[in-house]
């Protein structure tokens, strides 16, 4: 990094001769941040990589024994871990599809002349800015079979949401959809407003149908931004912890982050949990890679 430096300024401008050189300033500005992130993000990960090959338990004074790949082998052969991944996948699909349908749908509705559009948009965006844990907690009262407003409004009697093993995951996903559809809506609105008006006018002259216009003009042009929203939400839903942890304790809602948390901080299987953390980490990095590619693509447009 410190080698082969070219400054954007012409050296003849004289800046280099007064005060600190550009190279020194560049290094002073960039290196501390990189070091900070290495010390507090990368070093811990190396530390836990080491533990992932041991039987270390943070709750016991016994020294860690090297067990090689045993943790990884056992985890990958553990049907319960796979069921946690399956639950996570189901959760990701339900909540991301829900967010895209609701978020994109609302964006389509908002993409016309509507009184107080700015105010309404801001109000709709409010849920995603709030703390998932704190607001999520309150949904417990909303979902309550007897006192809950949801059952009252929908006329569902004493329908069980969170204490019903078949329903709990959907209940968590509904709360997530409520919180994060606004995010998809926000990005979709940006995409929709960037579609040139003359394309619609041309389509109208050609007497193109509404559906044709939507699938041939609107959707392809909004797709890149919508993709960003989808990948980002997929990643976040994959990592989900707060909502599911706060709302329920059903085995059917034990997403992978909750399994990891329990393994690490309740069962104190530190070595094993480090191995699981690595499996999760590799999956996340793969999605991040795709995400950043799309971010850069949209940026270049």
């Amino acid at each position: 990094m410190a080698t082969a430096v070219m400054t954007t300024l012409d050296p003849k401008s004289g800046a280099a001769s007064r005060g600190m050189s550009d190279i020194a300033i560049r290094n002073l500005f960039i290196i501390p941040t990189i070091l900070f992130l290495i010390v507090f993000n990368i070093f811990p990960l190396i530390y836990s990589l080491g533990y992932s090959f041991t039987d270390f338990r943070a709750s016991s004074p016994a020294a860690a024994n090297f067990v090689g790949l045993q943790n990884y082998r056992e985890l990958l052969n553990d049907p319960f871990i796979w069921s946690n991944f399956a639950i996570t996948a189901k959760y990701v699909i339900v909540s991301v599809v829900g967010q895209v349908v609701v978020g994109f749908g609302v964006a389509l509705l908002l993409n016309r002349t509507i009184p107080f559009k700015g105010l309404i948009t801001t109000l709709l965006l409010l849920p995603m800015m709030l703390s998932m844990a704190v607001v999520g907690l309150f949904w417990k009262l909303l979902y309550d079979p007897s006192f809950g407003i949801i059952n009252h409004v929908l006329g569902l009697g004493t329908f069980e949401w969170l204490s019903n093993p078949d329903m709990a995951l959907y209940a968590v996903a509904i709360t997530d959809i409520w919180m994060w559809s606004p995010f998809v809506m926000l990005l979709s609105l940006a995409g929709l407003s960037a579609v040139p008006k003359h394309l619609y006018e041309a389509a109208a002259i050609d007497r193109a149908g509404t559906l044709y216009t939507f699938f041939r003009i609107t959707l392809p042009l909004v797709a890149p931004i919508l993709m960003i929203a989808i990948i980002f939400r997929t990643m976040e839903a994959f990592k989900t912890f707060d909502l599911a942890y706060i709302l329920t304790s059903q085995p059917t809602t034990e997403v992978i982050s909750i399994r990891l948390y329990k393994m690490a901080f309740q069962e104190w299987q530190t070595g094993r949990s480090c191995a699981l953390a690595y499996i999760v980490l590799i999956m996340i990095l793969a999605i991040t890679n795709i995400y950043v590619k799309y971010l850069n693509k949209v940026k270049e447009r």
């Binding site: 990094m1 190279i23 993000n41 990891l260």
Partner: peptide
């Protein structure tokens, strides 16, 4: 300033944000 491997460094910086909290929290 021109930084060698800028795109990789920016990716590295962003990827630290994407780590699941529980994964970082254990170590």
């Amino acid at each position: 300033f021109r930084v060698k491997g800028e795109a990789d460094m920016l990716f590295f910086i962003l990827s630290t944000r994407m780590l699941p909290p529980v994964v970082v929290a254990i170590p």
